[in-house]
Write a protein that binds this DNA or RNA. Structure first.
Lengths: 146, 146
DNA sequence: TATTGTTATACTCTATAACTATA
DNA sequence: TATAGTTATAGAGTATAACAATA
């Protein structure tokens, strides 16, 4: 369902955003990472955090994060260790291999952005950024129903 | 996975687009239509067309369109009839009830856009539209892999 | 009793192949 | 043999509830 059915700005933003996301996911795949795993690594880059906090910032259910971390740990890109202060908690940390993977991700996403915004000057890209920042996107329960 | 993990323009466009799409899907739901059914009705508004052509413009597999049309026909918003010139074909047409539903959709989407772009003047909305139109979004096989 | 992480289950979406009826 | 529509099936993604270990 990717047809743009009208000239509405809302549809335009939604569909261009979707295609942009698809292009970026392709770039992440080229870098060897499943999109959700790449997003998780990005959140871990600044520093280690608990599994629960990680689920919160990623806005995924803790049960989904289990599978993500199993994959990241399986490929040696992140590690879980018990928090000695509270043995229920896992501290999650990116590994050196994970940092290297993130550098590949960074290059691939930069290349994708060069393609996506090739027709825009850097000034126009700044304008686009500022306008997008002012679109009202209240977080909350926004899902569909029939 | 809705966290915005960096200040990259690509991510910004992707995430704002996703949230905009969610807001619009909510509006369609308020108007009483599943998003894909609403999109299908919109394509039918200008005039009847064959089921195959409809699948093509919607960019969905013909087998998926079967369920959509079953629902639309079940709620009396669209109708299938055999093409007398080629009895394999179905001509799909929107009904009067379907047109009325589209008017509700139109109002709901307009209200959603008023909210989304409340912080932008109409000149700024024009600028945003023109910039989005120049983002390179080559259609093709852009999916993820691990 | 509450919290952290885990497992199990189910439900939606989507992709694919096989089937029918017509050409 | 090819085409239009349909059905059936399987896979990915996601949401929810129940569970074990620890506080």
């Amino acid at each position: 369902m990717a047809a743009e059915p009208s000239d509405r700005l809302g549809f335009l933003l939604s569909f261009r955003g979707e295609l942009t996301g698809a292009r970026i996911r392709t770039a992440l795949g080229v870098a060897g990472l499943h999109p959700r795993n790449a997003m998780t690594l990005m959140q871990l880059a600044p520093g280690a955090m608990s599994q629960r906090d990680l689920a919160a910032v990623l806005e995924v259910d803790p049960s989904q994060l289990v599978a993500i971390l199993n994959e990241l740990e399986g490929s040696g890109l992140a590690e879980r260790r018990r928090d000695p202060a509270d043995r229920r908690r896992h501290i999650v940390e990116i590994t050196e291999a994970g940092e290297a993977a993130l550098e590949r991700v960074d290059s691939a996403v930069s290349e994708a952005e060069r393609e996506l915004f090739a027709n825009l000057t850097s000034e126009e890209q700044d304008v686009l950024r500022r306008l997008l920042d002012r679109v009202v996107v209240e977080r909350g329960d926004h899902d569909c129903s029939e």
